[in-house]
Amino acid sequence: MYDSIVLRTVARFMLPLLFLLSVFMLIRGHNLPGGGFVGGLLAASAIILQIIAFGPDYARQAIPVSHLQVAATGVVFTALWGLPGLLTGQPYMTAFWLPEPIPGIGKIGTPVLFDIGVYLTVIGVTTQLAFILAEEPLFYPMRKKATPSEPVAPEA
């Protein structure tokens, strides 16, 4: 956490903007470059920005969900949208599309919903990683060689 007024001000503004951009990326994804993975990374980077600017405690309060559960929900959601194929006697992950595109969003089908699952999974996993690394309480410098005089670290 860096104590910088510029960073904190910018981070406060960037949070909604980055989330919007990530959703835009997600929706744009199935016809143009973008998609659930990139969108998820963008959303996660929005949260990581909060961690850097305000510290992990604040970031946890600002987004009060269990990130691993978000990821797991994403996996279930992803797996779920392959099932319509199986139930209609076609292979898993067979795509189904609505006949008409919805204005402003585009064609909607199971691959889009699949992508939303990917989006959730990526957000959950990446933020969880960032939190684990950020909340590490002590920083031990990497040591060259163990010397006998040093106390043995207690087993974690």
């Binding site: 269990s66 559960q69 996996v75 279930v76 797996a79 392959g82 194929g85 199986l86 006697g89 292979p91």
Partner: peptide, 24 residues
């Protein structure tokens, strides 16, 4: 086409995700 072949991968995968959601 033998679509049931997806099941042995899907069942544990979904089970794993649900077990994470079940949490504590």
């Amino acid at each position: 086409m033998d679509n049931h072949l997806f099941l042995p991968i899907l069942m544990p995968l979904i089970g794993a995700a649900l077990a994470v959601v079940a949490g504590q």
